[in-house]
Amino acid sequence: MGTDAVKLLVTGANGQLGQELVHMGNARIQIAGFGRDQLDITDLNRCREVLAEVKPHGIIHTAAYTAVDKAESEPDEAYRVNAIGTRNLAVAAEEIGAKLVFVSTDYVFDGTGTTPYEESTETNPQSVYGKTKRAGEEFVLDLSSRYFIVRTSWVYGQYGSNFVRTMLKLATERDTITVVADQIGSPTYARDLAAFLIQLVHTEKYGIYHATNSGSCSWYTFAREIFSEKGMNVRVEPCTTAEFRRPAPRPAYSVLDRAAIPRNGLSDLRPWREALREFLGVKEP
């Protein structure tokens, strides 16, 4: 890429991950963030126009239909954004020779496993959301020659709504909070994920990656850890997925094996508790 500043285009710039990325620009990395109002990814001509104007070296595609439960009753809209929108960006990126980073999800797996899912594990999405994200992955695989597919999970950060912020809000409203204890995954701090994506797009190590903070827990354990770190006296009661019915099925186990990161000489993400402490502003002991 030479010694000039690297120019990156971020889709979904108003989302929690997109906002983290936009704030990571510096003298060596120019980041042009586009929200839905400025770039409708479901419009191929608009994708081509924006890419021709910005001329990015790489695109970090975080824009997505992420309302997991709502997607069950709006499958066409979820597919239009997550699959067709991703196809459009893949086509437009390929035309100008730009790298494409597509942020995908643990929901592409069925969650019936008991050991971490490897990058090469067969996908088997159970929800509309998971199916549409997998369709997006397939378009990238078919249409892109310089791609990174990055699956992540349980993302939280300072922007947008997420589990950590919801728990902290609920703690101010009630004494007891009931949280699902039989879904296991890896919490991921949006800032750590954003830093990894920028590290990745600087390479030519194309392929599929799993990127989460290391370690795993249940939502129940995650909630308890949040309150423990903040020194908040909140009672957390465990419940089962069956007791907490939602329209979309959730993977019971969606821990992702991150073998592709060290295999390609990249820096792994730190343990999830360490990242959570930083986010909550708790000083290390």
Results as ranks from 00 to 15, higher is better:
I226G: 08
T166I: 03
Y209P: 03
L170K: 15
R46E: 04
W272M: 11
F279K: 08
E118S: 14
A194N: 09
L269V: 06
D69M: 09
F139Y: 15
G265Q: 11
A223S: 11
P285R: 13
P251V: 01
G18I: 01
P116Q: 08
L200Y: 05
E118L: 12
R258W: 00
T166H: 11
G111P: 00
T86K: 12
G207C: 07
H61C: 06
E229H: 07
I208A: 07
K131V: 00
T62D: 02
T62I: 09
D37N: 15
F109P: 04
L168A: 08
V234G: 11
H57G: 11
E137K: 10
K169P: 00
D106T: 08
A135G: 08
R165D: 05
T212L: 05
Y117D: 05
E77S: 13
A135P: 08
Q199P: 09
Y209M: 07
E284N: 12
T105V: 11
Q158M: 09
G215L: 03
I60F: 13
E77F: 13
D43Q: 14
C239I: 11
S120C: 07
V91G: 03
T241H: 09
N45W: 05
V101M: 12
C239G: 08
Y189G: 08
E74Y: 07
T188L: 13
T123W: 10
T66E: 01
G265P: 09
D106V: 12
R250C: 02
A171P: 04
F148E: 01
K99H: 13
N14V: 04
E225A: 09
S216P: 07
G136E: 00
R46Y: 00
S153N: 14
N162E: 01
R134Q: 12
G160T: 10
R273V: 04
G18S: 05
P116V: 02
G281K: 11
T86P: 06
S153F: 06
V103F: 05
Y65K: 09
I31D: 01
V128L: 09
D76C: 11
D76T: 10
G185P: 04
I96A: 11
I177H: 13
Y253S: 01
S161K: 14
R28G: 13
P187R: 09
A275I: 06
K7E: 01
L141Y: 05
A252R: 15
R246K: 15
W154Y: 14
P247T: 04
R165S: 12
L39Y: 05
A5D: 03
T66M: 05
R134I: 01
